[in-house]
Amino acid sequence: MTTTAERAPAPPGRLLRFWRRNGAGYLFVLPSMVFFVLFMFLPLGWSFVISFQQFGLAQSAWVGLDNYTSLLNDPVFRQAALNTALYSVLTVAVWVLVAMVLATLIHPLPPRFRTFFRAAYYLPAVTSAVFIALVWRWILNANPWGLANWVLSLFGAGPAGFISDPSPFLGANVALWSVILSSMLTIPAVGVVLYSAALSGIPRDLYEAAESEGAGAFAKFRHITVPLLKPITLYVAVIYTIAAFEVFERVYVMTGGGPGYATNTIVYLIWRTGFRFGEYGLASAEAFLLFLVIATISVLQFRALRSDVEY
C-alpha cells in the first residue's frame, strides 16, 4: 500500500498523501506538544532572556549580567544557596539510607504485613506538603507546650527555640537544623516503593548461595543487596536531590524563610523576589542558576547510569 503512495507524481497529491499517512499522528500529539512548547520550553528560553533584563511590564531594559553579578555578591542569595545545599545533602543522604533499609526490612515479611507497611509509609506522599509542614510547625514551636520542647524536657533539656531560633549551631543555625530535622523524619515514601520494586528483581539464589557460605543478614545486605541496588540508588538519589533543591512549602509554612534569612532557600527566594517584590529579572536569574545546578545533576546521573552496566 505504501508503494502506490511513493509513486505519487504531483506535489499537492504527495502532500495530501503525506497528511493521510501521518496526519493522525501529528493531531494526536498536537495538544501535548503545544502544551510543552507553550508552558515548558518557551518559558525556559524566555526566563533566560528576562534574566538579563530589568523587567518592567511596560518596558524592559537590558542590564547584561547585572542580575547575576548582584546575586553572586548578595549575602542573602549566598546564604539561601548554602542553606539549600546543606538541606539537600543531609536530607537526601538520610532519605536514601532510610528508604533502602526500610524496603529491605519490609521485603521478607508476609504479604499482609508488606502491604500494610508500604501503605503506612506511603501515606505522607498523598498529602500536600503544606499540611505536613503545618503540623511540624506546631510540633517544633518554641513554647513550652510545644511537643518537641516537651520531649526535650523529659531529658531535662530545653526549652529550645527550634524554628524561631536563628542562633548559630553546627555550622548553620538552629532554625535551619529544625527544618532539616522535620524533613528527615518524613518517610521517603517514593524511595521505599522504588527500592521495594527493585528488591523483588534480585534473584533469590544469590542469597541462598551466600547463606550456604555462612553469610549473615548484614553481610548479605552489604555484599548483595546494596551493590545490586546501586542503579536504583543513583536514581533515587537524583530524584530526591532535585526534590530537595526545590523545597518550598516546608519553608514557606514553617518559617517564611526566617528568622531574618536563617532558613531562606533558593526556591523560596525565587518566589519572594519574583512574586512578592515583582523583580522578575532577578527572580529569573535565580531560577536559571537553579536550573543549571539541577541540569548538571541530571546529566551526571545519566553519565553514572551509562557507565554502570555491570550485570
Partner: peptide, 9 residues
Amino acid sequence: IPVQVTLVP
C-alpha cells in the same frame, strides 16, 4: 526543567 524556572514567564 525545574518548574521554578518557568514560573515568571
